[in-house]
């Protein structure tokens, strides 16, 4: 198992967001988290990345308990990439500097080597001509692809994608999804929170339906999205279909 969450609990005051959640992710596996707003998808990703501290349970990365307070969180985060819904590129840095910041400052790689690697990635995703641009000159889809590259140049063991297409105009969603599909082809282990059911069906090996801070149902996409066992999953999917999002 690359990632293994056991009985994870997370509360904000009296509000219980994760209520004994258990989820395993194997090597090269892509798991899609679906569920209503507030079901805990984003919170789980933030907990795995140690941006939020869990209140109970254990999260393991490659078997190591990363929720042990004696573990250095910076060292853990260097092995986990996280991409945000709102991209969160650094607005005062060029695209290239955004990408090379962590390789140079954290992984202490030579600047020219980091630059070459960044340019290679930008070439692959068709953004080489934007390397000197600042984020505010890029479209949402371009910004999000840069954000994904920024996470990838650190060669993470695990990539977490938090609703990465939710802030995008519909015609820009495709370019980001294509990139994620390519990553799956290369064997990247990924956990993605998403509202794009069609995409979850295409790219995920397994879909996990979160409800009230637990994994209520999980399995192959055809089964969870096509013939769910739980009544609440069916309700959720019915609402999605009603909204024309499936």
């Amino acid at each position: 198992m690359v990632l293994s969450c056991t009985d994870v609990r997370k509360t904000f005051g009296s509000h219980v967001v994760l209520d004994g959640l258990t989820l395993d992710v194997g090597e090269h596996e892509v798991v899609a988290l679906i569920g209503a707003s507030g079901s805990g998808k984003s919170t789980l990703l933030r907990c795995v990345n140690l941006l939020a501290e869990i209140d109970d349970g254990v999260i393991r990365l490659d078997g190591e308990d990363i929720t042990d307070p004696r573990v250095d969180p910076d060292a853990v985060r260097q092995k986990i990439g996280l991409v945000f819904q709102s991209y969160n590129l650094f607005p005062h840095m060029s695209v290239l500097d955004n990408i090379t910041l962590a390789p140079v400052r954290v992984h202490k790689r030579p600047a020219n080597e980091a630059r070459d690697q960044a340019m290679e990635w930008l070439n692959r995703v068709g953004l080489a001509d934007k390397s000197g641009s600042y984020p505010d000159k890029l479209s949402g889809g371009q910004q999000q692809r840069v954000a994904i590259v920024r996470a990838l140049v650190n060669s993470p063991r695990l990539l977490l994608l938090d609703e990465v297409t939710s802030a995008l105009d519909p015609e820009l969603v495709g370019e980001v999804l294509t990139m994620i599909r390519d990553l799956k082809g290369e064997g990247m282990t990924m956990v993605l929170a998403t509202h794009e059911m069609g995409f979850a069906r295409q790219v995920a090996d397994r879909v996990a339906f979160l409800d009230k801070g637990r994994v209520l149902e999980q399995g192959p996409p055809e089964q969870v999205l096509g013939d769910p066992v739980e009544a609440r999953t069916r309700q959720f999917l019915a609402r999605i279909i009603e909204a024309g999002r499936l």
């Binding site: 933030r46 990345n49 060292a75 985060r77 990439g81 969160n88 650094f90 954290v106 650190n154």
Partner: peptide, 19 residues
């Protein structure tokens, strides 16, 4: 969210502040 992005890349608190 800017600090979250910096920390998620593995930058320490000090590095996040500085860069």
């Amino acid at each position: 969210s800017q600090i979250a992005a910096a920390r998620s890349l593995g930058l320490s608190y000090r590095q996040s502040m500085r860069f």
